[in-house]
Nucleic acid binder design. Structure first.
Length: 241
DNA sequence: TCATTAAATTGTT
DNA sequence: AACAATTTAATGA
């Protein structure tokens, strides 16, 4: 996988463009704003295409945007002081991230890398601050987002401790289908078995085996280039027999 | 629109 | 890790 990264905020800016109307509909929090607020936010919104392997943001970089995913798939990793990857989280369409660091005006604490060609959206920090100061709906969205993400990170730590590969795949899928954090996913998640392997830390073969085990229990349906969830609760509760 | 070909993804060993 | 089978995407008549 290539090690491209954005050399600076200006590089990101140069490659970005204004979103189309269809792309705007993929931004879940716009609907929580008043028409006036939404107009301001939409005017500031930029989108850019991230290539596979490309870093959207890196640890330590100054924050210039609050970012979200419209289409594609990102991998979020958190590194310890020693540079050892600690937790991985998949980031499907509809997910927005970095609000914690944007709020505090601190450098990014995560690496965000595109697993495949992805369309990333962002608003500038001043606009983010403006919405926080002004919009009740936006604050509600952010508060719920922070709360849900905290729960997700706790779940991710538990998943890392699990030994049974089938359970790990089941729980990881369940967190990728989180309806509040990732409203853009729907019931069909576009992810290849290879990509899922990267996220869960398993070989593609083992992921394939786990997926058809889960399919055998009517929890999911394996499709070409994606997974359809039939029973989200069942995935969360899944235990090997 | 259809047929052909290449590329991506899956299923199996 | 390798291979065959399947699905999708792209191309051009």
């Amino acid at each position: 996988m290539s090690e491209l990264h954005l050399s600076s905020a200006s590089a990101l800016l140069a490659r970005s463009r204004q979103p189309t109307a269809e792309e705007l509909s993929g931004v879940p929090w716009l609907a929580t704003l008043t028409p006036e607020e939404a107009a301001v936010a939409a005017a500031d919104l930029r989108v850019l295409q991230a290539e596979p392997g490309e870093y959207v943001c890196r640890v330590g970089r100054p924050v210039t945007y609050w970012l979200g995913l419209i289409d594609g798939l990102l991998k979020m990793s958190n590194e310890s002081d020693l540079g050892m990857p600690v937790t991985f989280t998949g980031l499907p369409p509809g997910g927005w991230f970095g609000e914690g660091t944007v709020l505090k005006h601190e450098p990014y604490r995560y690496n965000i890398q595109a697993l495949r060609r992805s369309l990333v959206a962002g608003i500038t920090v001043p606009t983010f601050d403006w919405l926080i100061e002004r919009s009740i709906g936006f604050n509600r969205f952010i508060m719920r987002q922070l709360n849900e993400r905290l729960g997700q990170f706790i779940a991710a730590r538990e998943i890392d401790r699990l030994s049974d590969p089938d359970v790990r795949v089941a729980r990881s899928l369940a967190s990728l289908f989180h309806p509040i954090l990732y409203p853009g996913v729907g019931d069909l998640l576009r992810i290849t078995q290879q990509e899922l392997g990267y996220l869960v830390g398993l070989s593609r073969q083992r992921v394939n085996q786990a997926l058809r085990s889960l399919q055998g229990r009517e929890l999911i349906r394996v499709e070409y280039g994606g997974v359809r969830v039939l029973d989200l609760e069942g995935l969360r509760r899944f235990r090997p027999m």
